[in-house]
């Protein structure tokens, strides 16, 4: 069987206790939520902690509640399965849909939102066994010096592959973090950085406590689109989160469009968003707007041959999935998924 490194497992029962353990053991410790990403990665020798700190019994990380301002605060330990069906989450279709399409059903029972936000980036040269990576001579992200995706590249461009990240970005989510230096908040936008080695602005010993999403506007519309080979299990080959508010006259405001599984950070399709902003969905010209939005997204989005499969095909799918996801949001449908 694939072996895990030998480690000690601890189960702190409060946030403070968890933070203290992480502080005490520094680099040698890693938090584990559902373990659905960390365990396979450890089995591939990608992480070799001496201590694994379970967050299962940390009460501060659990629970979903509506906030005073009508928004939502989701504890990091909320499972993906419960997130997908939680009543309050249905107000944010893009998030419920993204969660419902992650991996397969058993995995969603234990995989958490926190673990998903904190997911390691993925690459065909990296998510492989120890033997395989050693035969390759490793790569820049772990144990090696070369990038096999970008020849001569000095920077890892492994793909952000977490489905909830673009959804949360499109909803303007804020992350509540707690660390040895105390608590801090950061918008999820600032949190993700364009570095495939660690694409999160997370500090030593820090934990994600909860994710806060502002209240949806009355005319909030959103949807998620996911390209993958199979109808289940697979990570995204492309993920598109689309969110906007629609006024009574059918005019779009606060539009957002975030595309993922391209490079290390989910990409906000700025030009496309600008075209959407203020567009009249009831008007004659809206078809042309959609086409322009799709074209602008395609121009900006450059999938790299980081994850398996044909990256040129992924690029071709950008406008198709952007168009379909946009339409789904407008029709209060979705998710956009081939099944």
């Amino acid at each position: 069987m694939l072996r895990l490194p030998e480690f000690t497992l601890t189960r702190p029962e409060s946030l403070d206790a968890a933070l203290a353990l992480l502080k005490e053991h520094g680099d040698a410790a890693l938090p584990i939520a559902g373990g659905t990403d960390l365990v396979p990665n450890m089995k591939h020798g990608l992480f070799e902690p001496k201590m694994v700190v379970s967050l299962a019994d940390v009460p501060e990380l659990h629970g979903v509640e509506e906030t005073a301002d009508g928004g939502l605060r989701i504890g990091a330990m909320t499972t993906l399965a419960s997130l997908a069906v939680h009543e309050s989450v249905q107000r944010y279709p893009v998030l419920a849909q993204a969660a419902s399409l992650i991996a397969g059903p058993q995995l969603r029972e234990v995989g958490t939102l926190g673990g998903n936000v904190m997911l390691d980036t993925r690459c065909q040269w990296y998510n492989q066994t120890y033997f395989w990576r050693k035969a390759l001579g490793y790569c820049l992200k772990k144990d090696g010096t070369e990038c096999h995706v970008v020849k001569g590249g000095k920077k890892c461009v492994a793909a952000a592959s977490n489905d909830t990240a673009p959804a949360l970005m499109s909803l303007g989510a804020v992350l509540e973090l707690a660390g040895p230096e105390g608590a801090r908040e950061v918008t999820i936008d600032e949190f993700y950085v364009a570095d495939g080695i660690v694409n999160r602005d997370v500090r030593q010993g820090e934990l994600l406590v909860a994710v806060r999403i502002p209240a949806p506007a009355a005319g909030h519309r959103s949807a998620y689109g996911k390209l993958r080979t199979r109808g289940s299990i697979d990570f995204p080959l492309l993920g598109v989160a689309c969110s906007f508010d629609l006024d009574a006259a059918g005019v779009i405001a606060n539009a957002d469009l975030v595309v993922t599984a391209l490079q290390a950070r989910p990409t906000r399709a700025r030009k496309a968003i600008a075209l959407l902003e203020g567009a009249d969905t009831s008007g004659e010209g809206f078809e042309a707007v959609i086409a322009a939005v799709a074209a602008a997204a395609r121009k900006q989005c450059h999938p790299l041959p980081n994850i398996p499969g044909d990256h040129e095909y992924r690029r071709e799918m950008v406008p198709v999935y952007v168009t379909r996801t946009l339409r789904a949001a407008l029709d209060e449908g979705g998710p956009v998924h081939h099944i």
């Binding site: 199979r230 289940s232 099944i339």
Partner: peptide, 20 residues
Amino acid sequence: RFGLHRGPSLLDYTIPTSFD
């Protein structure tokens, strides 16, 4: 190109699920 199997796993070698 190195002669390494592209993805020797049941994640990368995609066999159909019940949906497919």
